[in-house]
């Protein structure tokens, strides 16, 4: 499906082109009086109002989550709605941490995401380099194998993978969470497409200088491909951090649970009305790190995610 992409794979050029021209040269030319009543109404109805509504629909629930995470049970279990919390009260975070081992979940998520993403990115770079720059028979067949893997949803594999991983002692271990997801079709595919666009001349120069494949890979190909590698890395980080179905199945003890699975545990123990503040504190802890990463580096993430539906 990914070959259908209507979006450029290169975040630098692709998303740059998405930017709406803020006050481009053709904009003021049409309007002789920019602040006339008709123009203002038109700008509001045709431009700002839909934009603001769309933004609010997204932002308000998240804002509500953050505000509620600071509220005492008394401020939530009430019939008249209080929008702002009485103060920056961290009790809910404290309760969330003590009811379930939240620090442990956070650390587990961090380890799974870091190790999983690092290995996946390296494997993707190595495989893509081999597919593009190393002579080998049946390279096209191998590429098709990777393309088909891209289309196999991980959800239909959970039962066989559970039996396999549990059988080799991976239940309730961090490596058991990480291992089945390490093979990367998405990263390989994306980097292969990028490597194919690199000019042959830079590699020929390195080859003439006597650089072997290893040096050509790390000293020529990787440095000029950093935006694409960042795209793969960030998409991988996001999907590892959010991954839910597999860690949910392969762990049933708190010591090895990741944050999303731990939140499920918290949900079971705080299922009444007074627990909402605590649950919102938990939701903040799982949502905010990715939101910050997204805010800082969104052009890479958007470019990577809009290329294909599969993000594994």
């Amino acid at each position: 499906m990914s070959t259908l992409s209507p979006v450029s794979p290169n975040p630098a050029s692709g998303v740059g082109a998405l930017k709406a021209p803020d006050g481009g040269p053709d904009l003021p030319a049409r309007r002789d009086k920019p602040f006339s009543r008709a123009n203002l109404v038109q700008a509001l109805a045709g431009g700002y109002i839909p934009l603001i509504v769309a933004t609010l629909v997204v932002v308000l629930p998240l804002l509500w989550m953050v505000l509620s995470s600071f509220k005492q049970p008394g401020e939530i279990v009430t019939t008249d709605l209080k929008i702002l919390p009485q103060g920056l009260n961290l009790d809910n975070y404290h309760t969330a941490m003590t009811t379930v081992p939240f620090a442990r979940f956070f650390l587990n998520s961090l380890i799974v995401t870091t190790v999983g993403s690092t290995v996946k990115v390296i494997l993707a770079i190595l495989t893509a380099y081999a597919l593009v720059f190393v002579r080998f028979p049946f390279k096209n067949v191998i590429f098709v194998v990777i393309l088909v893997a891209l289309m196999v949803p991980p959800q239909v594999s959970i039962l066989p993978n559970y039996i396999l991983i549990a059988g080799i002692g991976g239940k309730n271990t961090l490596w058991g969470i990480i291992l089945p997801g390490l093979g990367t079709a998405f990263g390989t595919f994306l980097l292969r497409q990028h490597f194919k666009t690199l000019p042959a001349s830079i590699l020929e120069a390195a080859e003439i200088d006597g650089a072997g494949h290893w040096r050509r890979l790390w000293q020529v190909v990787v440095p000029v491909s950093l935006p694409s590698i960042a795209t793969v890395a960030l998409v991988t980080v996001v999907s590892e951090w959010n991954d839910y179905i597999w860690p949910l199945i392969i762990t049933d003890r708190p010591e090895t649970m990741t944050l999303p699975v731990g939140l499920t545990l918290l949900q079971n123990s705080e299922g009444n009305g007074a627990g909402w503040g605590i649950l919102m504190a938990g939701a903040v802890l799982v949502i905010i790190p990715i939101l910050l990463v997204f805010a800082a580096l969104q052009r890479y993430i958007v470019a990577g995610l809009t290329q294909g539906s599969v993000t594994g």
């Binding site: 709406a20 904009l27 700002y48 934009l51 932002v59 998240l62 951090w241 959010n242 839910y244 990715i290």
Partner: peptide, 22 residues
């Protein structure tokens, strides 16, 4: 639309797609 703020709005609207479903 040719108005200011579309870049921010685009990021905001896309954000839920990358957030944890849980």
């Amino acid at each position: 639309a040719k108005v200011r703020g579309t870049t921010f709005a685009r990021s905001a609207v896309f954000a839920p797609y990358v957030l944890s479903g849980v």
